[in-house]
């Protein structure tokens, strides 16, 4: 299967290599993403999980180059079908955004422009990337609205965002993102602002459309439940770095990083309903004041001296996934060290 999903040349759809993204602030340079690498294959779903400030959304925005004005990619490559897009001009990026890769955001309440109709905003996405006439764009918009499960699309076309519910607006966002049939959909916390029943519907919709349109999804979330439902591969981030990456099974059943283990301990489950949950002690790291060693060190129960002093290298685990934790070196539980450019 894996081979079928690769295109003929064997080049992966999207490859992020040693990505560094930083923000210039009054208090100095903030390194929000610090050497992140991962690969996304066609039609697959990659989950990026981490807490607030871990750099997961910034990674997503870096791919689209829609960072705030003070943010920039300082190092690394982003290869789309083998071509580095970090050096693209703004014009080239405008062609990439929405056509090759789309993104939906956390808060559907504020992500749509309040003064334009739904129809106007979706049609705009079509008109930018095709030579369709306004009439054709309207037809395509209505078809897309039907596809994302909006009832009475003719009427919705003329409505304004404030006339729709949160769940509907997220469907609109999805319709807008997918209307040019991109290869990649980035979903940045797509369900965080929605209530649980709507959340499930939106995730199902995304999976259904993934099948229909054969697109790859990058889902960014702090919700391990969402990740478990959606992702083939998972990247766990902390303090702008990747702690651990592997398949969903690797991450959930054989975590090899203390942070991932901590995350899994803090999820309530049916079996341990009566047990007290174990939270991860301490607060998220201050990116302005990064420690010399492992970013998670200060909150880690098993921290050692070396954790304070040196950033752990990425290690290949015996089962084939990757983790950056000194515990594995101590326990000699790894196969090899991975260099940054892989």
């Amino acid at each position: 299967m894996a081979d079928l999903n690769k295109n003929k040349s064997g080049v992966p759809l999207l490859q992020v290599i040693d990505l560094h993204t930083s923000f210039t602030t009054d208090n100095g340079e903030v390194q929000a993403v610090n050497g992140v690498s991962f690969t996304l294959e066609e039609g697959k779903t990659l989950g990026i999980v981490g807490e607030s400030g871990s750099g997961k959304s910034v990674t997503a925005y870096s791919i689209m180059q829609i960072l705030e004005k003070n943010g920039h990619i300082s190092q690394g490559k982003i290869l789309y079908k083998g071509e580095d897009i970090t050096h693209y001009s703004e014009k080239q990026m405008q062609d990439f955004r929405g056509k090759k890769c789309s993104i939906i955001f956390q808060d559907p309440m504020t992500s749509l422009n309040p003064v334009y109709t739904i129809g106007n905003q979706i049609s705009e996405a079509i008109l930018i990337h095709s030579n369709k006439t306004k009439e054709q764009a309207k037809e395509a918009t209505i078809r897309m609205l039907e596809l994302v499960g909006i009832n009475d699309p003719q009427k919705r076309f003329k409505q304004y965002p404030h006339e729709l519910s949160g769940g509907m607006r997220q469907r609109i966002m999805i319709a807008m993102a997918l209307v040019s049939e991109p290869d990649i959909l980035i979903a940045d916390e797509p369900t965080t602002a929605l209530d649980v029943t709507i959340q499930a519907q939106i995730l199902e919709l995304m999976q259904e459309l993934q099948q229909k349109l054969n697109m790859a999804i990058i889902i960014v979330t702090h919700d391990l439940g969402v990740i478990a439902q959606m992702a083939d591969e998972i990247v766990v981030m902390y303090g702008g770095r990747i702690c651990e990456r592997g398949t969903a099974d690797h991450i959930f059943y054989s975590p090899a990083h203390e942070y991932t283990k901590g995350l899994l301990r803090s999820i309530p489950s049916v079996e341990n309903m009566k047990q007290k949950l174990v939270p991860i002690a301490g607060t998220p790291i201050n990116l302005l004041n990064m420690p010399k060693g492992c970013a998670f060190c200060a909150r880690c129960d098993n921290a050692m001296k070396i954790c304070l002093e040196e950033v752990p290298p990425e290690l290949k685990m015996p089962d084939g996934h990757y983790a950056s934790c000194w515990m594995n070196v101590k326990n000699n539980n790894y196969v090899s060290e991975v260099s940054a450019n892989e």
Binding site: E90, S102, F105, E124
Partner: peptide
């Protein structure tokens, strides 16, 4: 600074 501006940019709308 509103979210919908980011949405518009993400669609590929010109500056």
């Amino acid at each position: 600074s509103q979210d919908y501006i980011r949405t518009a940019r993400a669609k590929g709308v010109t500056t």
